[in-house]
Nucleic acid binder design. Sequence first.
RNA 1: GCGGACGUGGCGAAAUCGGUAGACGCAGCAGACUUAAAAUCUGCUUUCCUUCGGGAAGUGUGGGUUCAAGUCCCGCCGUCCGCACCA
Length: 848
Amino acid sequence: MASRFNPLKADAHWQRVWEEHGTFHADDSSARPKSYILEMFPYPSGRIHVGHVRNYVMGDVLARYRRMDGFEVLHPMGWDAFGLPAENAAMERKIHPGAWTRSNIATMRGQLKRLGLALDWSREFATCDPDYYGHQQALFLDLHEAGLVYRKESEVNWDPVDMTVLANEQVVDGKGWRSGAPVERRKLSQWFLRITDFAEELLESLGGLDKWPDKVRLMQENWIGRSQGLKFRFALERPIAGTDGFDVFTTRPDTIFGASFAAISPDHPIALAIAKDDPALAAFIAECKAGGTTAAELETAEKKGFDTGLKVVHPLDPEWTLPLYVANFVLIDYGTGAIFGCPAHDQRDLDFARKYGLPVTRVVAATPEEAAEPVGDEAYTGPGRLVNSRFLDGLTAEDASREIVARAETEGWGQGAIVWRLRDWGVSRQRYWGTPIPFIHCAACGPVPVPREQLPVVLPEDVAFDHPGNPLDRHPSWTRVDCPACGGPGRRETDTLDTFVDSSWYFMRFASQPADAPFNRAAVEAWLPVDQYIGGVEHAILHLLYARFWTHALKRIGRLDVAEPFEGLFTQGMVTHETYRAPDGRWLAPEEVEHKDGRLVVAATGEPAETGRVEKMSKSKRNTVDPDPIVDQYGADGLRWFLLSDSPPERDLPWSEAGIEGSWRFMQRLWRLADAESGVSTWLGAEESGEAVAALERKLHRTIAAVGANIEALAFNKAVANIYELANAIEKAPPSQARARTVETLLLLVAPMVPHLAEQAWAALGKEGLIANAAWPKADPALLVEDQVTIAVQVNGKLRDTLTAAKGAPREALEEMALASEKIVRILDGKLPRKVIVVPDRLVNLVA
RNA sequence: GCGGACGUGGCGAAAUCGGUAGACGCAGCAGACUUAAAAUCUGCUUUCCUUCGGGAAGUGUGGGUUCAAGUCCCGCCGUCCGCACCA
C-alpha cells in the first residue's frame, strides 16, 4: 500500500469502475424501497463553479448514503438548456444558440464527471432536445384542452429603438439594455396558464409540506396572497358611458361608514370611458403610465388622484354620496381595480384624504375614550370597537365585518369574497431559444392547436441574429403553414414558452422517458415525489410554485396521481466571493488581480483595483471559482470534503482556499489510518478487552448513529465533526483488532463524502466489492450509552466541580457525592444548602 | 412600509428538552523528529487577574422569568433575505 493517497490516479480509476459496473443506474423494477434525490439542474452557462459543486456534492452524499442504507436511489442530472444567455452569445459571438449551449453542456458534463458524483447519467437530457420539448408541447396541448390555457392581451417591455420585446432582465433603470432608450409598455396578445384556478389548493397543500423550510412556505403563502373580504357595488349617481356602477373589494367591510371617497384605477373601463371626452383625465392617465415600473420608483412615486367630479352612492345610505377619483395607486389587476377609501384606518387613504382635503372619520376605537379623539397623522389599523357607525356601534371590528357581509348578501348589493394576489402565469416569450408554442394562427379559425402527429414543432436551425427581435418572426418558410382546421393559409405561433415551463416537469421525465409519451405514469408514480430536492433559495417562489402547479394540473386532468412533486426541500446557501473592479468599472476575475505592497492591483497593468461586495458567484460579476484546478491539486475528495466542512449547508459560504489544505491533510490522515491497518494480521492476538477498547467501541457506535442522523438532516458540517472526533480517538487508541475494525467502519462512514479515497482504501484493505455497494453500518444501541457520566456540581448555578458517577445513579447518591466534594465543602464553609436540585446524569445544583 | 431570519473566540462553527459555553476544523504559538526543509507528531490557544491552588467576567445590548438562560419573555441596536401602492 502506498504511503500517500494519490487522487490523480484514484479519481479516474474509480470513476471508470463505477461507470463500467453501472453502479449508480437506478433500477425501476428494484424491490428495494425507492429514494429520489434531486438537485436543481443547472443552466449551461459555460463552466461550473464551486457554488454548483457545493450543491451537487450535498445531494451526492445523501444519494450515496441512501444507497448504502438499502434504498434504490434515483439521482439524475440534466440541463436547463433554453434561455436568453444563449441568444446574447449568438449576437455577441456569431455562434448559434444551440451550438453554444451544446458546447457548454459538454464542458460542464466533463467537469461534473471529475467530481465522482453518483449520478445515473443514462437518464441525462437537455430541455432543448426536441425529444424533451416535443413532449412538453403535447402537455401544453393537454392543458389547453382542459381549459387551463388561454390568450389575453398583456403588456410587454418594448424597446422603441431596437423595435423588440425585452425581458425584464434586459430593462436596466427603465431603459433598454442595448439601445439605452426609455422602455415603453406595449400590449400584445399572449398565452397564459390558469394557475389562479389552483390558488386555493396550492395554498392548502403547502400545509402538508412539513419537510420544507418554513421560510419557503411562508414566501409561497405571501405570494399566493389570500385576502378575505367583501365585494360590493357602488352605484354611480348618474350613469356614464352606459354603466351605472362598479364593484369594489375591501378587506375591512367594518369601516364602511368611514368611507370618504371612491377611487378607480387609471386602466379601469370607466376611467377610460370618461377620458374619451375629458382631455384632462386623458392627460392624467398618460402621466400615470409614464412613470417607471421598478419597485423603488413605485415606492417613492407620489400618490396622485384626479377628481372626476362624479359621485357614487354609499350602499347603506342613498342620501350619502362620495367623490369618485381616478388614482395612480389603484391596480387594475388586483381585486376589482377599484376601492373605497377609509382614511381613518388605512395609511395610504389617509395620506390621500389629507392631500385632497377629504373628510376623515374615525369608526374604530381601541378604547371608549379614543372614540372622540381626532385621527392624527397615523391611521389606526389595530383592533377595537365600532364608533360613528350607526347600527354597528359597539361591535368588535370582526363582528362588524361579519354583520356588513351578511347584510350586503341579504340586501343584494354585495357578497363575501376571496381575492388572490397570485396572477395567471404568462408563458409567452418573444424569443427564439425556447420551446415553440404549438399553435397555428388562421385568419378564419383563430389559433388552432398543431395536430399531435405533427409534434414536435422543431425550432428551425437556419436563423440569424444580426437584427434585433425574434428571428422566428422573420423566418420565411418556418412560419408558413396551412391551417389544420380549414386548410387555408396559416402562420405558426412564433412565441416560445417561458423556460420556467421547462423546469416544471423535468423531474418527471427523469423518472421515466418513453419515446412516445412525456412519461410513463406508473414509473413516475413509483419514483415521485422527489424525496429530497436541493437548490438555491432564489427559486423559493417561482420555480417551486410553477412545478407544484404543473403537478397539480396534471393530477386534475387525470394524467398523474401525485399530489406534490417535492416532499423534502432543502435550500442551500450560496458560495460567495469578493468581486473586483478595474478603474474603468470592468469586473475582474479573481485571477486577474493581485496584492502588491498591501494594495489590490490589476495584475496585468498594475493599476489599482477596487474590491467590491462579497456576492454570490456569477458569471456576470466574474467572481466565480473554477473547480478544475482545485481538483487537479487536491483531488475530487479534497474539494468535496472541504465544501462539506465547517459551514452549515443552509448558510452562505465565503470562498477561501485557506481551509482546503486542511481537507487535503485529513485525506492523507485517513489514508494513513487505513495503511496502518492493512497489515492487520500483525495485531492478531493483541489485547481485545480492556477499557481502551471498550471506549473506542462506544465512540464508534455513537459516531455511526450521529453521522447517519446528521446526513439525514443534511447537517454535513456536524457529520464531518463527528468523523474528525472518531479519527482522533482511533489515533489515540492502542493497536488491536478492534481498532482495525473501527478503521474499516470509519471508511464506510466517510464513503458518501470522499468516495474515491474510500474505495481505494477499501480495496487496499482487501475488502470484497465496492464500498459504494457496501451496507451502511448499524449502531449497536447497547453501546450508545455511557456507563459512566460526568456530573456538574454547581453552587448557586455556578460550576464549582465535576464528578464521575455511574449512569443512572440515584438522586440521593449524587447529592451525597456533591456535598462530599472537597471544593464544595470549602465553598459552603460549613453551611447547609437551602435547596438542592439534582438532574440525574447531569448535574447537582446547591442553592446556598 | 409589511413579513422573516440571524447576531457565540483571530476566523468557519458546535451546544437535540432551559442543565459543564466554545466540541470539530482553520489560522497562530511552543516543542519533537530532521544537516535543513517539506511531511508528520505532541502540547497550548475566549478575555482579564493570579501567590499557579485557582479566581472573575463572558454568547450584540438593557431588562425580566428561573435553582439554573446562548437557549424562554419584553425593549433596543445591528446585519441579511423576501414582498412591495395588494385595498
